[in-house]
Write a protein that binds this DNA or RNA. Structure first.
Lengths: 194, 194
DNA sequence: CAGATTCCATACGCAGCCGTATGGTGTCGA
DNA sequence: TCGACACCATACGGCTGCGTATGGAATCTG
């Protein structure tokens, strides 16, 4: 009954699907931003022409919305995965979350996030997506603080500080900072979580 | 002896100088980013044609560099102004700095900063400018913490937390957040400064 | 095997933008 | 009054990018 949309081509070249286009688009977004995401250059990067693109997508906006949906889903999936904690392991989970998100590694993810966030200032749909991700992230860390027994207001404040710090830190990773000193980081993590 | 380059035109229309072009450029950068800064659209916004632009600037890159220089100078001037403190007033100066920089107002300034920072990831000159501004801001707040008698490592860590928080907060001001609750803000400010 | 469907190439018109070349108008100094 | 210069308009060629129209090759279906 399933139409089985992905056909296993016997020839050497695999047919592209929307997921492949979105993956390629994310590479470009990380480097050039949403505005730098061009149909023809993306097609060239994938080794095809835009004739292929306009078969999979209605227009450029359709691609952008697909990228946005993909990003939202992956970001929500990730924050939920990073913030799972056994009872009693909430503090370790918080430290782990800060460590993962405020990392010099994951440059591509940071670039994508920054690009989407900047662009979303001028776009209603993008704005909604960013707000959903922000809300979920704040909620996940807030729940951990609540599980540690903190009062609601302090849990909200700590999660806000955590998120703002992590995001601000990652956004400033253009150049090497004195911020990446281990001693400084440890002090900050303690200040947020304890 | 001075060549007096700016002539007071007696006619109604004032002649444009580089400063006027830069000011107009900053408006566009705030809305569309550096990549959205186009010579012809900027000229249209200023009520002239690009014939005028190419008299004042060598090319589009020349304008961008001028915008960068202007932004760096104004940001360094501003952080120095906001962080002056009488002896004994360092804590108040720190609170004032957080209040000024992590404000929902000043949306244009935040947009400009974010746009420049994003764009600087792909540009050497922009990167250098951003790093200069970051270094100066970190240094200004660090000096305040040092004046409060904190040890050097903690002063550095606090200034890093302050900067990352303020910047992350301002970058997330797309939608309304639970972060702007007065109670939450007060808790965070205390956590950073005390 | 014949037709339908999937996936992509090619070609076209249109628009935006860059940088240059060139001409025009107003203002200044001698 | 007369160049000289500051400031800007107009016009041009070239490039990039969007979206569409159309054709073609490969695969699936009956």
């Amino acid at each position: 009954m399933e139409p089985k949309p992905l056909r296993a081509k016997t020839s050497g070249k695999e047919a592209l699907d929307r997921a492949a286009w979105i993956a390629g688009a994310l590479d470009i977004v990380a480097r050039d931003g949403i505005d730098g995401l061009r149909v023809e250059s993306l097609a060239k990067k994938l080794g095809v022409t835009k004739g292929s693109f306009y078969w999979h997508f209605k227009d450029r906006r359709d691609l952008i919305d697909a990228v946005l949906d993909d990003w939202r889903a992956s970001r929500i999936r990730d924050i939920r995965k990073q913030t799972v904690a056994e009872p009693g392991g909430e503090l370790a989970a918080l430290r782990h979350t800060i460590d993962v998100y405020a990392a010099a590694r994951n440059r591509k993810g940071i670039s994508i996030e920054a690009a989407i966030r900047i662009w979303a200032r001028q776009d209603g749909n993008g704005l909604a997506v960013v707000e959903e991700v922000d809300a979920e992230r704040l909620d996940c860390t807030r729940r951990l603080f609540l599980a540690l027994g903190l009062p609601a207001a302090e849990a909200a404040a700590r999660s806000a500080l955590l998120y703002a710090y992590v995001f601000g830190f990652s956004m400033m990773q253009c150049g090497r900072f004195p911020m990446d000193a281990a001693q400084t980081k440890d002090w900050i993590v303690g200040r947020i979580t304890q």
